[in-house]
């Protein structure tokens, strides 16, 4: 049973449309661990459809859709304090390290959407 992980502001529609034009959409056919506790995310992800489960202290949470997972940890090379598991048939946008930096400079309001 998963519950929403804190409250993060979803990325607004206009910004989301911009990201969809520039960055690839990906679908995960199979369940996979995106990163384990103590690891640094490989890219930042925006959840579009499906579910990403966050596991922290033996509790399970659902990532809020249209939030940005892993951006700060990726930029600061900081290990995550939780594990992220993507569920089958989940659709995301993947944003690489260099692009995240530019996005945060261009759209500082997105900081409220970072998990």
């Amino acid at each position: 049973m998963s519950i929403a992980y804190k409250t993060y502001q979803p990325i607004d529609d206009t910004l989301l449309e911009e990201f969809l034009k520039q960055y690839p959409e990906m679908i995960f056919p199979k369940e996979a661990t995106l990163f384990y506790k103590g690891q640094i995310p490989l890219t930042a992800l925006i959840l579009l459809e499906g579910e990403i489960v966050l596991k922290k202290n033996k509790q399970f949470y659902s990532l809020t859709p249209y939030t940005l997972l892993g951006a700060n940890n990726l930029l600061q090379n900081k290990p995550c304090t939780f594990e992220a598991i993507v569920q089958p048939k989940t659709k995301v946008i993947s944003i690489d390290k260099l692009s995240i930096k530019k996005i945060l400079e261009q759209f500082p309001q997105i900081k409220n959407s970072i998990v």
Binding site: F28, K30, A32, Q39, I40, P41, L42, N77
Partner: peptide
């Protein structure tokens, strides 16, 4: 630019059929 991570025995790095990141 690279991301360095440690994996324990049995942990998966990527799963067959899933999209590639790099």
């Amino acid at each position: 630019f690279k991301v360095v991570n440690q994996f324990k025995r049995g942990q998966s790095i990527f799963v067959e059929g899933n999209p590639t990141f790099g």
